[in-house]
Amino acid sequence: MTVASIRAESRWRTWYATFLILYRNKRAFVGFLILLAFLLMAIVGPYLVPLDMSARYAERYLPPSWEHPLGTDFVGRDTFALIVHGSRDVLSIAFLAALFTVGIALAVGMVAGLQGGLVDAVLMLLTNTVLTIPKFPVMLVFATVFRVKDPFSLALILSVWAWGGLARAVRSQILSLKEREFIEAARVMGLGLPHIVVRELLPNIMPYVAINFLYIMKDAITASVGLMFLGIIPFSATNWGMMLNLATQQSGAIYIPQGLYYALAPMVAIILFQLGALFFAHGLDEVLNPRLRS
């Protein structure tokens, strides 16, 4: 056996061990399965479920049936197909937006907290600016300049204004953490800054950040509806946030019993996704934070 293969095997073992822990933790495993299902839906779903966007008014608000597993929307389109085809954009935009937001927030919060002094003052000035500059006019200016289509730039726009709160929270935790014994100890031992950040600080704020990650994802779904109404991104009838908006505000679906399925479908999709992620995060806590396992 070569060294590489041993390494590969040990790595495989670590993965397997992680999986076992997840598997043993019922709730985390359920979460894992839900997320897997969403991932599959986003990747292969659109190839399996055909989407016809044409309106068939007479077939609107049909209840669930074999033909339409989730019924139809307010102009007679298949709700299930809308959800499936929307999932790729919705999830990738939400995930990217959350990734960028958390990335910026962690970077700003940690540097501000660790460095202190002038750096802290400047970064907090920036953070406060992002928190207080009125979003709406700025977005309108954006709208006249940019016409965004790809999920990447859209996620970037969404995150540019979303990181302020989390950055402050991270900073405040770092301020507290950096005075603790184990950090002091690490410093005394001469462990470098990267070690301290990656090994000591990050694991301690991860659970809090993970929960926020999830909420940022959810907010990104809603916020993209706002961007559609400003003209920054094109209208999309398959965006879950837009479906919810159409159901509750535009088409009046919640006022009529037969509209219930259409209103519930995107809501349940978002609820399930959040549940999956929350349960999964719950399991991750225990994996990453061995002290909790007992």
Partner: peptide, 10 residues
């Protein structure tokens, strides 16, 4: 509640 839980766990 969730934010508090996340924070408390750490």
């Amino acid at each position: 509640a969730l934010a508090m839980k996340g924070s408390a766990v750490s």
